[in-house]
């Protein structure tokens, strides 16, 4: 892969701009402009909402969304961090994401290791057992009844984690990676008498860190962005995730007002309920922006490894 990329570099930039024919120059300019425009469009909503969330409440209501508001304010952020709701939801979301991702990676890696060991005679049958769940499913209703009636996961924080523990797709991606690790490494460890779990944790996993990072990010993003579980199974407000609070705010402006009142400074006249909605959205994507360099590196890498299969 690396070699090919280098080749393309010499091809595309091999001909310096000033040596191109006029038509080719035009192509470069037009493409550059289109690409730049598209990224501006991609970025604009974020910029607009970030600015609006830092706008004074009354100014925002009067002027609407502006790139340069006439009065700035950090009242919304102060209010959401003074309230109980958002910091608590933040902790819930972080707990779910961290614990969920660790558990998911653990069981996915363990299971995938078995699937990648050639001496396991039933490995293809077991692989099909997982593959079939990607083809056919019982649908939302039986799952809902199972979780809420028979497993008693209602109003438990584990309802976010346990039903999402394993994604077979990630298993198959990881298996491609494990299969590329030379069999000789495992064999020599076995000859030394190492048990299988030790081979997995001491040899295979350290060699698979990029792949683990990739599927770990897939899992983490899935946990972080989940809201449906809260809507279906959680009645206890203390267990709401950030994403679900956003869903509630979208549906019902009153939930934003409630947060505003909770976190209101006694001095403020108008509770910043409008800007609070936007500030909540921004703090929700905060960790993603923070992790973005990693996300980009491993997601892009993972997508290329998965290749066309993605």
């Amino acid at each position: 892969m690396a070699r090919k990329e280098k080749d393309s570099e010499t091809l595309r930039t091999g001909q310096p701009f000033h040596l191109m024919s006029r038509g080719d120059k035009m192509v470069t300019i037009v493409f550059g402009v289109v690409i730049a425009l598209f990224s501006i469009v991609c970025l604009m909503p974020f910029v607009l909402v970030v600015i609006a969330s830092f706008t004074d409440e009354a100014t925002l209501v009067r002027e609407g969304y502006r790139f340069i508001p006439s009065k700035w304010s950090i009242e919304a952020y102060k209010a959401i961090f003074r309230s109980d709701t958002i910091p608590r939801a933040y902790m819930i979301s972080i707990f779910v994401t961290v614990v969920g991702t660790v558990l998911s990676l653990l069981i996915t890696a363990m299971g995938t290791y078995t699937l990648s060991c050639t001496q396991v005679r039933y490995r293809n049958k077991i692989a099909f057992f997982f593959y079939f769940t990607m083809l056919f499913n019982g649908g939302m209703v039986p799952t809902y009844i199972l979780i809420s009636k028979y497993l008693n996961l209602r109003d438990s924080i584990w309802v976010y984690i346990i039903p999402a523990l394993l994604n077979p797709w990630n298993m198959f991606m990881l298996r491609n990676f494990f299969n590329d690790i030379p069999e000789a490494l495992k064999e020599s460890a076995r000859l030394e008498g190492a048990p299988e779990w030790l081979i997995l944790f001491r040899i295979i996993l350290p060699l698979s860190l990029p792949a683990l990072a990739t599927i770990g990010l897939f899992y983490a993003l899935n946990y972080w962005n989940a809201w449906m579980e809260a809507m279906l199974y959680i009645d206890d407000e203390k267990l709401y995730t950030l994403q679900y609070i956003i869903m509630k705010i979208i549906r019902n402006v009153n939930s934003a007002t409630q947060i505003a009142v909770e976190g209101a400074n006694t001095g403020t006249v108008v509770p910043p309920s409008y800007t609070i909605r936007l500030a909540t959205a921004i703090v929700t994507i905060g960790p993603i922006i923070f992790l973005y360099p990693f996300l980009q590196k491993y997601f892009v890498g993972g997508l290329k490894v998965g290749g066309v299969k993605g």
């Binding site: 290791y113 396991v120 997982f130 019982g138 039986p142 394993l166």
Partner: peptide, 23 residues
């Protein structure tokens, strides 16, 4: 031990994928 390692995944699939199919 190899079959034990994949047990959590199998249990997960049975409970959350195959039982709903029965449902």
């Amino acid at each position: 031990w190899l079959y034990m390692l994949i047990m959590p995944c199998i249990l997960f699939a049975i409970v959350f994928k195959y039982i709903p199919m029965v449902g």
